[in-house]
Write a protein that binds this DNA or RNA. Sequence first.
DNA 1: CGCGGAGTTGAACGCATTCAAGTCTTGTGG
DNA 2: CCACAAGACTTGAATGCGTTCAACTCCGCG
Lengths: 252, 252
Amino acid sequence: MADMSLERAYPGLFDHREANCLHALQGKPEAHGPRARIVECGQAQTRSLYLCRGFVGRTRMDRSGKRQFLALQIAGDFIDLQAFVLERLDHDIHAIGEVVVRPSPHASLRQLSATDSELMQKLWRVSLIDAAIHRYWIFRLGRLSGRARLANFFSEMLVRLYARGLGTLTRYHLPLTQTDIAEICGMTPVHANRLIGELRAEGTCDFLNGEVLVSDPAQLLRAGQFSWDYLFLHASLDEELRRLLKPQKARA
Amino acid sequence: MADMSLERAYPGLFDHREANCLHALQGKPEAHGPRARIVECGQAQTRSLYLCRGFVGRTRMDRSGKRQFLALQIAGDFIDLQAFVLERLDHDIHAIGEVVVRPSPHASLRQLSATDSELMQKLWRVSLIDAAIHRYWIFRLGRLSGRARLANFFSEMLVRLYARGLGTLTRYHLPLTQTDIAEICGMTPVHANRLIGELRAEGTCDFLNGEVLVSDPAQLLRAGQFSWDYLFLHASLDEELRRLLKPQKARA
DNA sequence: CGCGGAGTTGAACGCATTCAAGTCTTGTGG
DNA sequence: CCACAAGACTTGAATGCGTTCAACTCCGCG
């Protein structure tokens, strides 16, 4: 699979010059294998990473060593912009499956930001959308039942991956284990397993071998009380999704 | 009580010139009463707000109309920077008790950002710390037991308010109801009540009439598995807290 | 005096965790 | 080729944390 380009990841945001500009200051691609720790909590950073391919997870441990996923980043995300501004991270970043990242030295970014305030503001924008996703995760964990949390999470990944051209509305690749999903949705692996079984039995969606299958996307979104307003998608994409996901009665 | 100044809120971040600069482009203070909706979800915004006094909450409703707090902002927070970059908000902002805000027109901010990229980056920094707090709330809701969630939340407010000079390590003002706290910690009001009763009974902390009383701060932090690394406090303040909160055996 | 919001308490129910056992797949080495 | 180990997934049964519904107190306020 080809690497995710900036233009494809952010339609309507970066123009051609800006995309080239950002691309130019990135170093060589670096590959990481499954479960590799890409950035370690607390370490000082001198560069930030762009995720070209694959998935990475932000995690934090509790005292007894159990993990909680704080975010799941997909190809086309800047996974480490925070470190450019805050110098260090307050959590770990792990590869999920095979990933490819490209580093941007902070020195280059600083230079860029001094000369191109508009581009800098666009990077700010990207980081604020991440923050909006964080807030939505708070909503999910705080207000939704177990089953709705799962459906809501699968809905989010459906829309985010679709927006990057990384899946259809009925199927996408998600190389997580059920244990990962439990750590995302704030439940035990056993319970995640049972609830996924329920979703499967009632035909809402299925998750098998790192593939999510959705026979009726509108129903999945309903089951998860999902809406994608917080993703700040490009207007045309938003409209497209509204058209494809809203009324929908019969399907092939 | 005096309004929170920028220099007091962000020690070591904004220098005198920058603080004046930001202050200069703010409009007249505006007051809001309890439960007033300060910013409405989805509306286009032409200005961003600085919170001089009081508390505001970011909330999102589920389908059945129940609220979840996504964040709690205190005096000295920029409560609406997101709108400067993203034009609209994906959630509501409510006053909690009496609050005073000062608006900054987006036009002025845009002008400023073009001329002073360093200052803009500092505002970016502020918004990234908010994002770090969001992530910590995800951790709290996803991994901690009910009682630990409460103790963790009270710990966070202890440290954040102390950092702004808005409380001591044994007592601070927090004008919330038990129902608000339930909506923050992802539980029912009844259960929040019972757990607060437990914390009171075991002497961890007490919450009464909008006051939080902590006889042994170190114990509270332990009960909530709290650490403040994610708040990116000024180094001297961090050290001060470590000194005051870490070993601590006897107290007056 | 009565109303409403906040706090408190009891009891029944149910969702989720825990512990445990067992299946299935995959990769490794005899 | 088979044996075996490891990890992911699945299922059962017991326990318990948290919700739900309900009643009741306390307080400030009109």
